[in-house]
Structures are given as structure tokens and as C-alpha cells.
Design a protein around this nucleic acid. Structure first.
Length: 748
DNA sequence: CTGGTCATTTTTTTT
DNA sequence: AAATGACCAG
């Protein structure tokens, strides 16, 4: 143990100590933003171990890989390097934990151990296919809405039969029909979607006493992070793991519940004391992160939620600067002002870029910001962990890999059978399918017997033969090799490289000299390098369980980790750049300075939530999460006019802005700033530096205003009539003044 | 069978 | 604005 027991409790507040010292029985930690949650959690784990609990008896579940990694790291730091991977506490995301255990206990879950995990795009494809098979028009039944309905059902552990039993109108009966077909499709493909990972795990724990007892015995102490975001399936998993020993500690904040749309059930945390009657409750209300005005702003906003446990937020830090609310002309203007804001923090406050973040409600807003930061030469990264794996060429390569692990995965097979084009087109495929249907064969098996089929051209038969031979060769290589092999050709990276080369993916892009294709080639190279560097995180059940060190096992683990990556995982705090991300991705993070954009009605709150009280409250919590990411500086902005999906429209101020406590906020209306034209072509910024004459007020000079007092000129905007200057006053914030009327007096 | 053009559509958030 | 899907010429 690297840390002395007494040190674990040092520098903690009273309630923090209570949480760390708590040993047996259920514990609920209500942790407001910035209340030292992670510290408490990791120290509690170290405390348990210091008092005789074996490290491997502890299971901590989180929502993102990043949170898991961070927790693992901090626990290691407390424990010292003495604990090897297999004996350390298990720290994993819900999804990766379930995925692993379902492979290990596949026979209990009625699953093939080599099952594929379908991401949302694969799921979409499969649902689309199911809609067609159900004989319903894809006009009225969009894959998106069907997917949402099925997902909701799975999150509450309703399988297709249970759903059908409750379906009593045309809509639900139709969904039930599609659900059945979709499930059958997944079953025959040996595939699970994200929701299945949780549902199957919950069902396995419920149905198999043997498995349940093994888990209960192994994991004596359970810890769940972000408990406010758990759905019913996750609740059932937690409940059955803890039901014997009741050693369950959950940590969360109802005010930060922002995943209701994904089935998160806020009552899990609100009713924890009913589910676990002996629960001890600890409330951490003191904020150690943000300065006074920021905390007050957040508190003022969130108290507008009615369905809420009342909780006081407070900080002992100084008041700090007041958050600024800026009204901009359009989104380009808004983005430029964000860039200016960040640059000013860098210049005046010496803040490093990595301490700044820009947050927005929807990904589509990142584009303008990106352009503005690029123009201002501010280094940035957009948190889009999945972006790489969403690229067409990467998904194609992954589909080949999945097909090798799981021959029954027809979604993957269909995706790549003619990618790159190898002469197996639609008509040929239809014939093979028909043959397979008549002979009761899986698609891949049918392909292997192409020679027996009538009505196929010799060309088509040849093409199919070549394809089948390729795949079979790869399979043999994967089954024969080992992960640790030093031979390049039989390592995971080597296998991936071989497949990319032999499949023709590489050649398809190599000859072209277009920029786009070169990029695709680079992405494929990056995939090879990701596979080469991949090291499986051990989440093995028994200490003596043999890790799967075969090449095929490594490939399976690699695909699994790739499938479960999230946007938030891409955030690298050491990148030395500004981070751009959605409000959802920002949860759990903190920055010295935060700029939030798009504080407009129908954007935040999002249009989908307007008119629904529950969803509006979730949007408010989302805004709350954004505000509370800021440690010292916060700017909220909105545009008077915004172009969305090619339509330029005036906006309305977000209701959340009107709910902020006026005494903690500084308002600044920049929407009349000239120099930003709404024209399509020459949008430009009239930002003049000190050398450009504009009357007698160069940028940077100090002026006196009869009402506002002393201020500093930030920008001047010359115009034929009524030139303006933007002046920052320490008392009232930034104002745009018309020089003719403002009676400014230059004093320095 | 392939590759192009034209028309149609877009649930925001994510494991 | 961008991305997918349908349709048609080679």
C-alpha cells in the first residue's frame, strides 16, 4: 500500500470522510458537481482494501471507458504498483463488463461466444431489413423510430414476446412484429446490439442461480458511478449482484441526469433508499471546483426544476469573475467572439489552451466553431471518438474482421461481399440467397457451394470462389496464430494488414490520387496501427482463468473494444489544445474556462423537448452540467440569426438565460456590431488593430463614459455613419457604443 | 454489373 | 448543407 490509512482521510470534509469510512451495507452518495466525487470513490476503495477486503472482490462500474480508465489509474496510484492486473479491483464500463461476461458465460446466456456487437449503424441496417420483411412500408416506419421503441423495450427488459403481449394498438402491434423479426435476425447472425448486452446480462443473472452466485461470491463490494444515468436493466444487474451481501455503493447527482432519452431512469437514484432500506445517505454539497458567481448561476438555474430533491450548492472559493452572456449577430459572429474570448484568456490570464472548452448542444454546431478557431489559429480538438470508426473505409475493414470471428454475421458479410467491387452484384447475390434458402444454408455456406447453382455466370462463380477462398485463408491464419507472436505475419496488426491488402481495399484507394482517397488510405494504416498497439484490458472472472491469447481471441477483444468506444473517450487532457464537445460528452470534466454556445430556444432546450415538462427539465439539467464544468471563466452566447439545414432563421433567447440570477451575470449585446454581414459570400470580421485610425479611439486605449466610467476599447467598427466601438467596462461588462452619441473621452 | 446523376430526407444527445 | 437512395446509361 503506497498510501497510509490515515492519509486517506486527510484533507476531507466531514461528509466526505463518512463516505470513505463506510464499510458494509448500501450507501448512497449524492455528489453535486465539483464535490470531490472521484476522490471519495477512489479513497473509499483504498480504505476497504486497507481494512482487509481483497482487491479482486471489488467491482466498480462506470459509463465511459475514460471514466473507468481514470478511476483505475487513481486507484493504482493509491495502492501502489504492487497489485497486478488480475488481482486488482475490476473497473469497467457497464457495457464492456457485460460483453466480457457474456462471452465467458455464453452457454448460460444461450449465446455463441464469438457473437458480434452491432453498433447503431449496423442496428439500423438490421432494423431496415426487418421492416421490409414485416411487410411494412419504410415510408411510415423509419428505422430511427422503430429502433427507439425497441431500445426502450429492451431497457425495461421486455423481449419481443413480452412486448407483443402488451401491444394493443396498430402502432405497438406493428413494432412488436418488427421486433420479433429483428430479434430473429440478431439470433441467426449471432449478434447483439448495445441494449442486448445489458438485457442479456440481467436475464442471465436472473435466470441462472449458478452464475448469479458465482458473481456474488466473487464481487463482495460493488460501486456504481453516475448512478442517475442507469436504466432499468442496469438497475437489475446492480440489484442482483448486490442482493446477497448488500454491499453496494452508488454515486450520482439527480441534477446531472441527462440520459433519460436513452432509458436512464432517474427514480433509480431518487428511490434508492426504498430499494435498499438500510441505506446510508451522504450528501456532498460543497463545490470545490467553481468560483462563487458560477456556482450561484448554476444553482439559480437548476432551482427552476420542480421534480427535484432540494439541495443547496455552495462554495467557499472567492466570487471570481461574473459569467458573461453574449448576444451575437449570427453563428459566424458567435464563433468569432468565442475565439476572441479564448484568445483573451490566453493573453491576459495566461491560461493554457488545454484548460479551455467550448460546449454545444448538437454536433452540427462544431463546424462554425472549427472554422473560427482555425482562422484565429487557436489549436483545438473535437471530441468525436467514434468519428474514426465511423469512416466508411474503416467500417469496411472492421466488417471483414467481424466476418472472420463470426461467420454467421450476415450484416457484415453483406456489407463487404462486393466492397471493393469484385463482380458479386445484386442479381448474383439474390440467386445465392435463393439457393441458400432452399437448401437451408447460411449465406456464407451457400457461397461456398456456388458451383452447384444454376443460372450463375462462370464469371460470377469465379468471383465468389475467389472471395470464399480469401476469407477461409484469413480464418485459418487467425485460428493458428497467437497474439504474442513475434512474427509480423501472425500478429494482430499483421493480420489486419494482410486483410486490408488481400481484400483489395488498399488497392481501391492506392491508384487514385485524390486527396480523399489518400486520407482513406491513411485511415486504414491507422487502423493497422491501432490493432498493432492493442492490448486487451483483462476483465477475467477467475484468477486462474486462462486469458485467451490466441490471435482469434485478440481479434475478438479488439473488435469488442472498438464497438464500445464513445465520443467522451477521445478527450485527451494533455493534448494542449482547446476541446470542443457536446454537453453530453462534457459530463464529468472540468475546465478553467468554458464557452457555451447556442443558448437559444429550440436548440437548448432542443426543439424535441419543448412542450414536454420532463424533457424540458432534462434540458435544464444539461445546461446545468455545462455551466458547472467551468472553474473560473464562463461565457454563454447566442446568435440572433442562425442558419440551420440551409435555412436562415431568427432565433429566440433560451428560457434558461432568463432564469439565471441577474446579480451573478454580465450581459453584453453584440448583435448590432457592424462588420458581420449576413450575405452568403463575403462574411467578414471588421476587426481593426491599433494602427488603423478610427477617430481618436484606437483599440486598447482607455476611455471614460459619463455613465459607465472607465473602460478599455476592444474593437472599433468604422462605418459611413455612426461608427461604433466595443468597450469593456469593469462595472457593466462589454458595451457596443455609437461614437457620435456616447460622448467618450479618451484618458489613456 | 458498374458508376453516374437526380431526387429525397434528415430525431440532437450515445453505450 | 449533406447524405442517402432510386434510377438509368454504358
Amino acid at each position: 500500500m503506497a498510501t497510509e490509512v490515515s492519509e486517506l482521510l486527510a484533507d476531507l470534509t466531514e461528509p466526505q470522510c463518512d463516505a470513505v469510512r463506510h464499510r458494509d451495507g448500501p450507501l448512497l452518495v449524492l455528489a453535486g458537481p465539483g464535490s470531490g466525487k472521484t476522490t471519495v470513490v477512489t479513497r473509499r476503495i483504498a480504505h476497504l482494501i486497507a481494512h482487509g477486503v481483497q482487491p479482486w472482490q471489488i467491482l466498480a462500474l462506470t459509463f465511459t471507458n475514460k471514466a473507468a480508465g481514470e478511476m483505475r489509474e487513481r486507484i493504482c496510484a493509491l495502492l501502489g504498483a504492487g497489485v497486478d492486473d488480475y488481482r486488482a479491483p475490476t473497473v469497467a464500463t457497464f457495457h464492456s463488463f457485460c460483453a466480457r461476461q457474456l462471452r465467458r458465460f455464453a452457454e448460460f446466456a444461450d449465446l455463441a461466444p464469438n457473437y458480434s456487437i452491432y453498433d447503431s449503424a449496423d442496428q439500423r441496417d438490421a432494423i431496415k431489413q426487418s421492416i421490409v420483411e414485416a411487410g411494412l412500408s419504410s415510408k411510415n416506419w423509419t428505422p430511427g423510430s422503430v429502433a427507439a421503441a425497441i431500445s426502450n423495450a429492451k431497457n425495461t427488459l421486455m423481449d419481443a414476446d413480452a412486448y407483443a403481449a402488451e401491444a394493443d394498438d396498430f402502432y405497438t402491434r406493428s413494432i412488436a412484429k418488427i421486433y420479433r423479426i429483428y430479434e430473429r435476425l440478431l439470433q441467426t447472425n449471432d449478434a447483439l446490439d448495445f441494449d442486448d448486452l445489458l438485457m442479456r446480462m440481467a436475464r442471465m443473472l436472473r435466470d441462472s442461480q449458478e452464475v448469479r452466485e458465482r458473481f456474488q461470491e466473487r464481487y463482495q463490494y460493488l460501486l456504481i458511478d453516475e448512478y442517475q444515468d442507469t436504466n432499468h436493466a442496469q438497475f437489475v444487474i446492480a440489484h442482483s449482484l448486490a442482493s446477497a451481501h448488500q454491499n453496494i455503493c452508488v454515486v450520482g447527482d439527480p441534477d446531472q441526469s441527462i440520459y433519460g432519452w436513452r432509458g436512464a431512469d432517474i427514480s433509480n437514484i431518487l428511490e434508492f433508499e426504498e430499494h435498499f432500506p438500510n441505506a446510508v445517505v451522504v450528501a456532498l454539497g460543497q463545490n470545490f471546483r467553481s468560483t462563487g458567481h458560477i456556482v450561484d448561476t448554476a444553482a439559480g438555474l437548476i432551482q427552476n426544476n420542480r421534480r427535484r430533491k432540494h439541495k443547496r450548492l455552495h462554495t467557499e472559493l472567492e466570487d471570481g469573475a461574473k459569467p458573461t452572456v453574449v448576444m451575437c449577430r449570427n453563428e459566424q459572429h458567435e464563433a468569432a467572439l468565442v475565439a476572441e474570448y479564448l484568445q483573451r484568456l490566453r493573453d491576459d490570464d495566461d491560461l493554457p489552451w488545454k484548460e479551455m472548452a467550448v460546449l454545444y448542444r448538437i454536433n452540427a454546431l462544431s463546424r462554425v466553431l472549427e472554422e473560427a478557431l482555425l482562422a484565429a489559429q487557436i489549436p483545438y480538438v473535437i471530441a468525436r471518438g467514434t468519428a474514426f470508426y465511423d469512416r466508411k473505409e474503416v467500417k469496411d475493414a472492421l466488417a471483414y474482421l467481424r466476418l472472420i470471428v463470426n461467420p454467421n454475421d450476415e450484416v457484415s458479410l453483406r456489407r463487404i461481399i462486393n466492397t471493393p467491387t469484385r463482380g458479386i452484384g445484386k442479381t448474383t447475390l439474390t440467386k445465392v440467397e435463393l439457393f441458400g434458402y432452399n437448401q437451408q444454408l447460411r449465406l456464407f455456406e451457400a457461397l461456398g457451394r456456388a458451383g452447384e447453382m444454376s443460372g450463375l455466370t462462370t464469371r460470377a462463380v469465379g468471383a465468389i470462389r475467389r472471395f470464399v477462398t480469401l476469407v477461409e485463408g484469413w480464418r485459418r491464419a487467425a485460428a493458428g496464430g497467437s497474439q504474442s507472436s513475434l512474427l509480423e505475419s501472425s500478429s494482430l496488426g499483421g493480420l489486419v494488414e494482410r486483410i486490408i491488402r488481400e481484400s483489395g481495399l488498399e488497392a481501391a484507394y492506392r491508384d487514385s490520387k485524390s486527396e480523399e482517397d489518400r486520407e482513406r488510405l491513411e485511415n486504414l494504416a491507422e487502423l493497422i496501427s491501432a490493432a498493432t498497439q492493442f492490448v486487451a484490458q483483462p476483465i477475467d472472472f477467475d484468477e486462474d482463468a486462462q486469458a485467451d491469447t490466441t490471435l482469434l481471441g485478440g481479434l475478438t477483444a479488439f473488435l469488442e473494444s472498438v464497438a464500445l468506444i464513445s465520443d467522451a473517450d477521445a478527450i485527451d487532457p494533455e493534448s494542449g489544445t482547446v476541446t470542443l464537445m457536446t454537453l453530453h460528452a462534457a459530463k464529468g470534466l472540468e475546465y478553467a474556462a468554458v464557452a457555451m454556445v447556442g443558448l437559444e430556444e429550440n436548440l437548448l432546450p432542443h426543439i424535441r423537448a419543448v412542450g414536454n415538462e420532463m424533457e424540458l427539465e432534462e434540458e435544464r439539467r444539461l445546461c446545468f452540467v455545462g455551466i458547472t464544468r467551468a472553474k473560473r471563466h464562463l461565457q454563454l452566447s447566442r446568435a440572433a440569426v442562425r442558419t440551420h439545414r440551409g435555412l436562415r432563421e431568427p432565433t429566440m433567447e433560451s428560457r434558461f438565460l432568463t432564469e439565471l440570477p441577474g446579480e451573478s451575470i454580465v450581459y453584453s449585446d453584440q448583435s448590432d456590431a457592424v462588420g458581420y454581414f449576413d450575405g452568403d459570400d463575403d462574411m467578414q470580421v471588421a476587426r481593426l488593430d491599433g494602427e488603423t485610425p478610427c477617430g481618436e479611439f484606437p483599440v486598447g486605449c482607455v476611455v471614460r463614459h459619463p455613465k459607465f466610467g472607465l473602460g478599455r476599447v476592444e474593437a472599433v467598427m468604422p462605418q459611413v455613419m455612426g461608427s461604433k466601438a466595443r468597450v469593456e467596462f469593469p462595472t457593466v461588462g462589454t458595451k457596443t457604443l455609437i461614437l457620435e452619441y456616447a460622448k467618450l473621452e479618451r484618458v489613456g
